[in-house]
């Protein structure tokens, strides 16, 4: 229908807001309680695969066996990869710029993504040894570790 061209195309900006509450479950709750109450970082070992997983889980990703045990990992760790975030996004937990790193805690076979502070970006390198700085008031979430910093 040719007469459709006389209309200015209609577009609207809207948004959907969804609230939720994520339950950490068996392994997750144990991890967050240890972090909050004792400043301990826990991982899940699979004796079968000789791997220690972080984040902790109740099932081994590789061999499907049930994992009931948990072991302390870290608190020291090694930077495996990193970046400098220079753009802002509403979903970012803090304003840019900040250094974001994947840190393999001692004793773990997988990395934890977290902030790296108290260091010049130019000085950061893969293999850098770091330690966590814990929040004085801890609430049972991953920001109970405020950030990591170089040894």
């Amino acid at each position: 229908m040719d007469d459709l061209n006389q209309y200015q195309p209609f577009e609207v900006d809207q948004h959907l807001t969804a609230h939720g509450n994520y339950w950490a479950g068996r392994a997750g709750s144990r991890f967050y309680r240890a972090l909050r109450d004792r400043r301990r970082i826990l991982g899940s070992p699979c004796r079968n695969c000789r791997k220690v997983f972080w984040p902790p889980r109740s099932i081994c990703t590789f061999c499907f066996s049930e994992l009931r045990e948990m072991v302390e990992i870290g608190p020291l760790g090694t930077v495996e990869t990193f970046t400098l975030v220079t753009y802002a996004e509403p979903v970012h937990p803090r304003p840019a710029p900040f250094i974001y790193a994947v840190i393999r805690l001692d004793g773990a076979d997988t990395g934890m993504a977290h902030f790296l502070d108290e260091v010049e970006y130019e000085r950061v390198h893969v293999g850098m040894r770091v330690r966590p700085v814990f929040a004085p008031q801890r609430k049972g979430n991953i920001l109970d570790i405020l950030y990591f910093k170089p040894l």
Partner: peptide, 25 residues
């Protein structure tokens, strides 16, 4: 179901099905 995360809950059904079938993953 505060005692499980989504993975732990799903895994309950998966293990029940494997057991019922007498099969492994």
């Amino acid at each position: 179901r505060h005692d499980v995360d989504q993975a732990e809950m799903v895994n309950e059904a998966v293990r029940a099905a494997l057991k019922d079938a007498g099969m492994t993953m």
